[in-house]
Nucleic acid binder design. Structure first.
Lengths: 275, 275
DNA sequence: GGCGGCGATACCGTGGGGGTATGGAAACCC
DNA sequence: GGGTTTCCATACCCCCACGGTATCGCCGCC
């Protein structure tokens, strides 16, 4: 199977429409139709059910969509990492914007003090995107937060575990309490983060896309949220926190793609775990 | 990058010889040379250092060899899993030949008793091959033994942990002792298992390639070995065991490729962990 | 029943991948 | 040191497969 065929199939499987898929691929529709039929014939498997009105995935097509995306990611990763290996031998670290406030600078300082340290570029991204960045080679190492982020298919090392606190404006009804419980918060509208595709699930809370925006909304009294306690060091005035007793513990882990233990990466991981 | 280019590059990088690589690929040498140069030009990266006498990998070439193998594995996996999804919806479980003697049948029985169980095909392979089989889609799930097998890039669930015993012929000098230590065994020639490429590292012990052969050699007095204690249930007469106090504990885990939680697989994993 | 949307089919042109023949550099050998 | 061998690169050619345009066939809809 060639990556071209995979790209074609993934486009069609995502659009469920040959015309739109062809447009997305920058080609005409007939060659795309043919390419998919050829792929089906070569695999000996029906991937799509076409009526002249609609296209749906078969069981096998669903599998190939999932596996094909992963395979394309791996190919792109190979390309990116090769390119990067030829130029800079620095590392790219990715973390959620606004997360890991304290830990990150400490880690970078500790690593930079090492004898053979290489430059570390820090990329901040939206929640849940780190895995994709690692997978397709745009990043070498990530900071993830369990249990929110998935570590499927990554090697990890635990760094810290912390409890969570409710973040709210100073005058909030809970601001004078010594602690709260999750059940106290059930009625409060929680801000909604974007899904992987950039859209928002429906719900009562405001839509946010980064931490600064979130903290502003909280300061404005439009939202409250539950965050790891380390955020307290980076809160400006006007915001206050109380512990949430039964919120899940948040573990920060450093994660990297398996089989990629370059010397530089090993050094960074070691520096991080020694903190 | 097309998989064809990747296959070409991997072949050349492994052979370090354009002529042999071309033969392996079933093509002539000149088009192969050209394809590699094109790849280098497109990536903007030198992958190989050629003198007219020898070919060596550059730094970037080393990266692409590693990443390219993984990417090709992912593509093959996509193909195989798609094919399998269209026919049988059974599972393929892979384990080292001779290992997991007790656990495996129990697990399969427990799973078969479940309401929606699908057929499970059991494949036995040499040590260290399970990961490759999982990765390229020939297997869905594997039994691995820590700390010997690598679980890099796999999702796992621990099943059992056991200590190890020395296996030897009945009349062996250690057979009357209550226990031994690793230091007692330092002088004994241990059998050598094949590496990933099927070759053997040099050393004093006999070369073995499966468990039956190993046990026969032990019965013949030509070798002794250290194995997880569960092997005791499958030893025939003439062999005996004593505990090795300070041998590493062996943990049997069930492992599967990330992102592949089909219903059937989830059921099998659940049945296994409930044992 | 005419129309519009969509996927499949028919047919054509071209670019690129693969072939053979040959060049050119470096090691080896007597 | 010149001939020989070895090995990768270049030159040239051919053909197939990929992509484009035109068109058909099917089906829902107004």
């Amino acid at each position: 199977m060639e990556t071209r065929e995979l790209r074609y199939f993934v486009a069609v499987a995502e659009e469920l429409h040959f015309g739109r898929a062809a447009a997305r691929l920058g080609m005409a529709q007939p060659p795309l139709s043919r390419a998919i039929s050829q792929l089906e014939r070569r695999l000996g498997v029906d991937l799509l059910r076409r009526t002249s009105r609609s296209v749906t995935l078969t069981e096998a097509g669903t599998v190939l969509l999932r596996e094909g995306r992963a395979a394309l990611g791996a190919v792109e990763a190979a390309e990116r990492r090769t390119r990067r290996a030829s130029q800079s031998q620095g590392l790219v670290l990715v973390s959620k914007a606004g997360a890991a406030g304290e830990l990150l600078p400490k880690m970078l300082d500790a690593y930079a003090a090492e004898p053979h340290a290489v430059p570390v570029e820090v990329v901040l991204c939206g929640a849940g995107q780190q895995e994709a960045l690692l997978r397709d080679g745009r990043a070498d190492v990530a900071l993830l937060h369990l249990p929110f982020d998935s570590t499927a298919g990554l090697d990890t090392e635990e760094l810290t575990t912390e409890s969570q606190v409710l973040v709210m404006p100073a005058g909030h009804e809970f601001s004078t309490r010594a602690s709260v419980r999750m059940s106290d918060l059930a009625e409060l509208p929680m801000p909604r983060w974007p899904e992987l595709d950039g859209t928002y699930l429906p719900g009562p809370g405001p839509e946010v896309h980064d931490a600064t925006q979130l903290l502003q909304l909280i300061a404005l009294g439009r939202a409250v949220t539950v965050l790891p306690e380390s955020v307290r060091t980076s809160l400006h005035g006007g915001l206050t926190t109380v512990p949430v007793l039964d919120a899940p513990l948040v573990t920060t882990v450093i994660a990297w793609p398996p089989h990629s233990r370059s010397l530089a990466l090993a050094g960074l991981i070691q520096a991080a775990t020694r903190l």
